[in-house]
């Protein structure tokens, strides 16, 4: 069974045919958006993180049909206009990745954390990001990058 659905993808209205068995990552691939990527396929690694109606979700566990009418944001929305988001810049400056496969997921979750809590401490950072895995184990640099991003955003807001 498949169905035509409409939703907002990175601020633009889109329409697509989605099979009832397909997940959100499958749907995003149709738009050549590869930043949310399937790794574990079981909601255990965070590589597939997308933001749906303001909430981060595991794309691998989200049925594609659930996107109907939703506001969907992917990592590709963050540097609209070619300017990196402060979180992305902080990840670069702190060297917070190696292979980069997990990075969009961590960036998306960090973005959300800083919306909810602009100045998190180390423990808050670790517990917020505990659903994201990094096999290259860039964790110490990721924690630094989150703090760096928080400082940049605070400075920009001041």
């Amino acid at each position: 069974m498949s169905k035509d659905i409409a939703f907002t993808l990175n601020s633009r209205p889109v329409r697509v045919t989605v099979g009832s068995h397909e997940n959100a990552v499958d749907v995003l691939r149709r738009f050549d958006l590869f930043g949310a990527r399937e790794s574990c396929g079981q909601g255990l690694c965070g590589c597939c993180t997308v933001r749906v109606d303001g909430k981060p979700l595991s794309g691998c566990l989200t049925l594609g049909l659930k996107l109907e009418g939703a506001m969907v944001e992917t990592v590709e929305s963050l540097d609209a206009g070619g300017e990196l988001d402060p979180v992305q810049q902080a990840f670069i400056d702190q060297g917070a990745f190696q292979c980069g496969f997990c990075t969009p997921g961590f960036v998306m979750m960090t973005k959300q954390l800083l919306r909810e809590k602009p100045q998190p401490d180390d423990e808050e950072i670790r517990s917020y990001l505990s659903g994201n895995l990094c096999r290259c184990a860039a964790y110490p640099e990721i924690v630094k990058a989150v703090k760096d991003a928080a400082a940049r955003m605070a400075a920009a807001a001041a």
């Binding site: 958006l33 590869f34 930043g35 949310a36 990527r37 992917t74 990592v75 590709e76 963050l78 540097d79 990196l84 992305q88 810049q89 990840f91 670069i92 400056d93 060297g95 990745f97 980069g100 496969f101 990075t103 969009p104 960036v107």
Partner: peptide
């Protein structure tokens, strides 16, 4: 110096075979 491919990786635009 930072990794040459740093921007591609943080923006989710690095090319993997996966894509």
């Amino acid at each position: 110096p930072p990794r040459l491919e740093a921007r591609r990786k943080v923006t989710g635009r690095a090319a993997y075979v996966h894509n």
